[in-house]
């Protein structure tokens, strides 16, 4: 039962299929088998948050899931945020507010912020800080990231109310 299994899942709105041994982590499956290297491997024990993706619409650590567990799931990775060649409002705001330096934590930051804005479209600064504490930025550029999330939240609310 430790031999490889077929895994069929939807990633960024596209059905993909491959095989993996049960011990293969979801983040390694995304990077090595599906060629989606936007999701980064950091600490591999769920602390740093760099590997955060959306699983069935909710943020989760892809280093704390086995690829076989994602069989049948719908995933969104950082590659799936931009649509029709246009950056997502969160990505746009990160660019404007210098919300990234080395970029290592950025995919995890973006998807964690995305999840926050889904459950709380109008977070105050304290709530943004609490949510982003799930991801470590070793450049320590947190202030730009917080400003970016505030801006994106405002724009997304405006877009909905229009």
């Amino acid at each position: 039962m430790s031999e490889s299994r077929r895994i069929r899942l939807k990633v960024n709105c596209e059905w993909r299929e491959s095989r993996a041994a049960p011990r293969k982590l979801l983040v390694d499956f995304l990077r090595e088998d599906l060629g989606l290297t936007g999701t980064h491997v950091g600490c591999e024990h769920g602390i740093c948050g760099a590997c955060t993706i959306l699983v069935n619409g909710e943020a989760a650590r892809s280093c704390l899931m086995l690829a076989v567990q994602a069989d049948g799931a719908e995933l969104t990775t950082v590659e799936g945020l931009a649509a029709h060649g246009k950056l997502h409002p969160l990505q746009e705001a990160f660019r404007e507010h210098h919300g990234l330096q080395c970029g290592f934590c950025t995919p995890g930051m973006l998807l964690t912020a995305y999840d926050l804005l889904c459950v709380n479209p109008a977070p105050d600064e304290e709530e943004i800080r609490a949510a982003l504490s799930a991801v470590l930025c070793r450049c320590t550029g947190y202030l730009g990231i917080i400003e970016a999330v505030k801006t994106a939240a405002r724009r997304l609310r405006e877009a909905i109310s229009k």
Binding site: G46, G49, T52, V55, E58, A59, A60, R61, L64, M65, T112, D115, L116, V119, A131, S133, A134
Partner: peptide, 8 residues
Amino acid sequence: GHLPTRTR
């Protein structure tokens, strides 16, 4: 933990 760990 954090919201992303509470998801699972």
